Simulated scan of single mutants.
Amino acid sequence: MSKTQKVMKKYEKQFASNVTSGFGSFIRTTGNVFVRIFKFFDNKLTIMIVPHSQSKVINFQTNVFALCLGTLLTLGIFASFFYYSRRSLSANMEISALTEQNRETLASLDQLRDENTNLFQAAKRFQTSLSQSLSLLGIDQSDNNSVSTNSNSDLASLFSSTEVAQGTSREVADVKELTNYLEDAVKPIEQIGKMLKTQQNLFTEIPSISPVKNPNYHISMPFGPNIHPLNGNWYIHKGIDFSTWRSGDAVLATASGQVVTVGFDNSFGNQIVIKHSHGMYTRYAHLNSMRVKKGQIVAQGEVIGTIGNTGVSTGPHLHYEVHIGSDVVDPQKYININFAK
């Protein structure tokens, strides 16, 4: 064996000895620490309860480990108690909030049911009015009724079925039935719209709007028997007198037509006469100014002059007449048929 090998062998033995010695020292130190800890926790303690009276003193013998363990358990119990108490309080608050929300939801549901009842009452009135309107216009309802019957959307069957159904499903079924009925009602309403559109020209040819543009007018003298404001005798007033308590308010053509008279009359003052279709004429008298010419074509609602106090008149007003051929008729009957926009 060489000298170098001998030296290496010597260092190996020394290193092994040091490792063994260090590990043994670590084991002994660790053992001593555990022994000291065990001895500390195994120290005996005596707890004495001394009453104020002459009763016997109570002694409890324990050690540090049992005392620490009991303390930890006690603290754990108190901590768990506070934790679950807080959770319980939070849960109670959440339950209260949900209860209040449920109460509000029930109140809203009751209100919804009331509105649902009102909706069906309005639907009944709508059905009656629609049927009457269709009958007056001569629109055949058999096709619509057959469709409604096949789809179970007729309101009569609807209201009879609602008496059998119960609960929330009843309201849902009612709304569905009403939706079906309204969808079926669209067709006859569209027919009414088409009919009105085709008759639009007829409406503009009939004196159906008020001849005074100012909405704050009043009728100072109606059509028919009246007392003459000048001589006090009874006479037949052949038109309607409209008054706005002032001159200058616009006068409108009540129907489309052709101007046949523009001029002054001793009785009517400044007057305009318009010829309409179907043998109808309208007269506008006592005007302050006239804004059309003879032969001019005017449209319904067009301004033709202004209210005045010309001719035999006791104050600013419009004398308005409607003639059918040679007959004078009450204009109020046509003004009530108001198709003006």
Rank of each mutant, 00 (worst) to 15 (best):
G138L: 04
A255H: 04
V322G: 03
I49C: 07
F159R: 15
F159H: 08
I236M: 15
A250D: 15
L130M: 14
F65Y: 00
N116T: 13
L69K: 09
I337F: 10
L158H: 00
A185E: 03
S55C: 02
F159K: 14
H276M: 01
F159N: 15
I274Q: 09
K39H: 09
G70I: 09
Q5S: 08
Q332P: 00
S289H: 05
N226Q: 15
M195A: 10
H237M: 10
T261S: 13
V186E: 14
K293L: 02
F223P: 07
I304R: 02
N336H: 05
T179V: 06
M280E: 07
K39V: 08
L73C: 10
D42W: 08
I297G: 01
A285N: 11
I272W: 04
N226P: 00
I189Y: 07
D42T: 12
D330E: 02
I304H: 03
G311S: 09
T74F: 09
N152T: 05
H323F: 01
V312G: 00
V292C: 05
T282P: 07
T99K: 15
I240L: 15
E104I: 15
I337R: 05
A97N: 13
S108C: 09
Y217L: 03
T261G: 06
A91M: 04
F126W: 07
L130E: 06
S157T: 13
S151P: 01
G325V: 04
E302D: 13
S161H: 04
F126N: 04
L196P: 02
V35E: 10
E163Q: 14
T179W: 05
G138W: 00
K176N: 03
L73F: 02
T99M: 12
Y181R: 11
Q54R: 07
E190Q: 11
Q271M: 15
E302H: 03
P229Y: 01
Q111T: 12
A79V: 08
A250K: 10
N150C: 06
G24H: 02
F203N: 02
D174P: 02
N309V: 08
G279W: 04
H319V: 12
S80Q: 00
S313I: 10
M48T: 14
S210Q: 07
L98A: 14
K333S: 03
M221N: 14
G70Y: 06
V329Y: 06
F242M: 13
K10P: 05
G239F: 01
H276I: 05
V147I: 13
S133T: 15
I297P: 06
L98W: 08
G305T: 14
F264P: 02
L134W: 00
F65P: 09
L287W: 09
L119C: 03
R86M: 10
G76S: 11
L109A: 12
F120V: 13
H52S: 14
S256Q: 04
M1G: 14
Q101N: 13
E321Q: 12
T204H: 09
L155Y: 07
M221W: 00
Y83K: 11
L137E: 04
E171A: 11
I236A: 13
A123C: 05
L69T: 13
P316F: 07
L130H: 08
F26T: 10
L75I: 14
P51C: 11
P316L: 08
L112M: 13
V259N: 05
T162M: 15
T4A: 09
A255R: 06
S55Q: 11
A165I: 06
K333V: 13
P229K: 12
N144H: 00
